[in-house]
Computed example of a mutant assay.
Amino acid sequence: MRIERSLAVALLGAAGLLLAAPAPARAADTVEASLILNWIAGGDHAPYYYAKQEGWYEAAGLDLDIEQGKGSQLAAQRVGIGSNELGLADMGVVLIAKGEGAEVVAIMNVYANTPQGFYWLKSSGIEGPKDFPGKKIGNPPGDAARAMFPAFAQAVGIEADSVQWINVQANAKLSALKAGSIDVTTSFYNIHHIFQAQLGDDMGFVSWAEVGVNPYGNSLIANAEFLEENPEAVRAFVEVTQKAFAHCVEEPEACVAALVAANTGLKQDNELQNWELVTELMSNEHSRTVGLGHFEEARMTDDYALVDQYFEIKNPFEVESAYTNEFIDTSIKMPD
């Protein structure tokens, strides 16, 4: 699926004034907040840096600090204890963390589709997941893809214990695949272009979403106490961020340029490809018809059941307490 860059007229009407006008003076009652990312900054984080560069957060009364992350688990934990007021983390990880006592509430979805995917070499004889039995799948120990593989296996009609898992660090997966020490590996779709560049026409790929295993991916979260005490600050954060994501779908080059300017070592072309893939992960029927960033109740219920089945939520809770759509502007949608 390829996302068109032009946004719907309704989106432009709702967001146009904020996006086109210069940032007004800083609000008198400014709230300080820090946003911890799920990982080190990359193309998928461009909207936060663009909105900060343009002064949109400041104009909305937020003094926002963006902090590099080291995984969704750390982000959920730090937001849960209030070390960071806001964060970005995989929704499944958020549900696990909440079951362990983290005081978090998801306030906006970013990845409407799971970024999880499998990669292999066609020259190995593998044509698809039906050929995975007896093969070696390499990824880091403790990786979510391992724990949830039984759900994938059931969806494609193979036995969950029919594959051999090999411990491979994240930055060695591609080289291990090319060297033949593993037959299959896992990766997030927003770096699909890197696999494609390295493997070319020999690249085999299947996304989890294609086979019907599609839990929500990265989502924005807030510390529950901060949310209760500063609802308008959270509202402002979501409002600006939602419009920033919409703007970056329409004007990706400028947004990625802001990311690159703020983070030494990033390259415009590479992060632009990353961002283009992110727009695919952001788009599904719900985000196109109901609202960009809006959580679907039935999917959240299903995700809770899926996570509980494969990770066992330590202290069960009502899934409705883990997220809110209160701050989402439903006039802002992903384009068709």
Rank of each mutant, 00 (worst) to 15 (best):
L12N: 06
L12D: 10
L18K: 08
L19H: 13
A27V: 11
L37D: 12
N38Q: 07
A41L: 13
A41S: 15
G43D: 04
D44S: 03
D44T: 04
Y49A: 07
W56Y: 03
E58L: 09
E58C: 07
E58Y: 09
L64S: 02
G80L: 00
I81S: 11
G92A: 02
G92Q: 04
L95R: 08
A97Q: 12
A97H: 10
E100V: 02
A102Y: 08
E103S: 10
V105T: 15
A112Q: 12
G117T: 05
F118M: 12
W120F: 15
E127H: 10
A145N: 14
M148R: 14
Q154T: 08
E159M: 11
A160D: 05
A160H: 01
D161M: 07
D161T: 08
V163F: 00
W165Q: 08
Q169Y: 04
A179L: 09
A179M: 00
S181C: 00
I182S: 02
I182N: 01
D183C: 03
V184L: 06
T185G: 03
S187Q: 11
Y189T: 06
I191W: 11
I191L: 10
Q198I: 10
L199Q: 13
M203G: 14
F205E: 15
S207V: 02
V213S: 00
N214W: 13
G217I: 10
I221R: 01
N223P: 00
A224I: 01
E225D: 11
E225A: 08
E229W: 00
A233H: 04
E239I: 02
T241A: 12
F245K: 04
H247F: 15
E250L: 03
P252H: 09
A257M: 02
V260I: 04
A262D: 12
N263Q: 14
N263T: 13
D269G: 10
N270V: 15
N270M: 11
Q273Y: 12
E276N: 14
L277Q: 08
T279E: 12
H286L: 11
S287K: 07
S287N: 01
T289I: 00
L292F: 02
L292H: 06
G293I: 06
M300P: 01
D302K: 01
L306M: 07
F311W: 11
F311D: 13
F311H: 13
N315E: 15
N315T: 14
P316F: 00
F317W: 09
N325H: 04
N325I: 04
I328Q: 02
K333M: 03
P335M: 06
